Computed example of a mutant assay.
Amino acid sequence: MIRYATRRVLLGVVQVGLVIALVFVLTEALPGDAAVTIAGDNPDPAVIALLRAQLGLDQPAWVRLGEWFFGVLHGDFGRSLVGSRPVAEIIAAAAGPTLLLTALTLALLVPLSVLLGMLAAHREGGCLDRVITSSTLGLYSAPEFAMAILVVTVFAVQLGWFPPTAVGSSSLLAQPAVLVLPVLVLLLRPICSLSRLVRAGVLDAQRAEYVRHVRRLGLSPTRVRFAHVLPNAVAPAVQQLARTSDWLIGGVIVVEAIFAIPGMGTTLVDAVAARDLPVIQGLAVVFATTTVLVNLAADIAARVLAPASEVGR
């Protein structure tokens, strides 16, 4: 396990470096730069040239990329080209709302997905199984922006139960009602995929030879279900949960935009619009590192839960 984790970490370091380089190349290919954005309407070429020199944009691309890599190795993500704020400070401020939404969504997602999956598998082919399966399939096919607009229209505009957006909120925790609709939208698709995976895993585990063997030993149905069926059934779902966590931490740009949540997804969109390369690169490091760590944790957890399976190999 230690050798496997070490190999994955080293591979992850290489992947993070490649992602950063790719983001830098793609950002360089965008028309305009931060100097043009700062200059505003009807910019003077002389002013733009001066801004480029002050921001270091007049240096070759490979020099700027090398300097940024060197700074990251020393824990320095640089400063924003728009506003001169430290990039680490910008990311830290944006991470709070995104991590809060992620934590709340995962806290509800895991137990609800396991419960729905086990209920559907326990009543395979029955009315409850058909209702859960068809409902999750229908909800999964709906895109986030459509569901977000729908829940805002119904629960915020028509019924007036919750605030439609976070505009005017000094803090998300100060007004918990602001979080209800975004978390609901973030739950809908992941809970569908995870519950269906749990259902399929439970059905496969119930038919496995080791489960039939422990039943022959006289163990109670409850112990068989929770001690032997469930751990092996949720192992495939753990990797899907890792991808879901990565998706959530990535900001869920559409949901943040509709509900005016100032998270990392919104910050990334603003940085791309302003050609703020240090902020884009800093977010790329965060997203790439998160992806590597979350998937590594998921693979290790899957091996612990189902060591005999090929999950995570």
Rank of each mutant, 00 (worst) to 15 (best):
G138W: 06
V154F: 12
M147L: 15
E209C: 00
C192M: 04
A166L: 02
P164L: 12
S134A: 15
H213Y: 14
A227I: 12
A177C: 09
R130K: 12
F162Y: 03
Y140N: 13
L179K: 04
H213T: 13
W161G: 11
L219F: 15
H213R: 13
L139K: 02
G168I: 09
V180C: 04
V211M: 12
S169F: 09
R225A: 15
D204Y: 05
N232M: 10
V214S: 08
Q175T: 09
H228Y: 13
L179A: 02
S135F: 15
E144M: 14
W161A: 14
L197R: 01
R212M: 08
A200L: 06
V211C: 11
L172A: 04
A200P: 02
L172N: 02
T153I: 05
V185W: 01
S220N: 15
V151K: 07
S220A: 15
L179G: 06
P182N: 05
Q175N: 14
R212D: 07
L186R: 07
H213K: 03
P182T: 01
A148W: 06
L150N: 06
D204M: 07
E144L: 14
D129F: 01
F155M: 04
V151G: 08
I191Q: 13
G160A: 12
G160I: 09
Y140T: 13
A200W: 02
P143W: 13
R189T: 06
V224I: 13
A148D: 08
V154K: 09
G168S: 10
L173V: 08
S193R: 15
S169W: 06
S141R: 01
D204P: 02
L179R: 03
R215K: 14
P164R: 14
A205N: 01
L150G: 08
Y140W: 14
V202K: 02
L217E: 13
V151H: 05
S135G: 11
T136A: 10
V152A: 12
A205Y: 00
P221Q: 07
H213N: 11
R216S: 15
T165G: 03
V154E: 12
A148R: 10
L219Q: 12
I191S: 12
A156I: 00
V214I: 09
R215W: 06
L179F: 03
T133M: 07
I149S: 15
V183K: 10
V214T: 08
A166R: 04
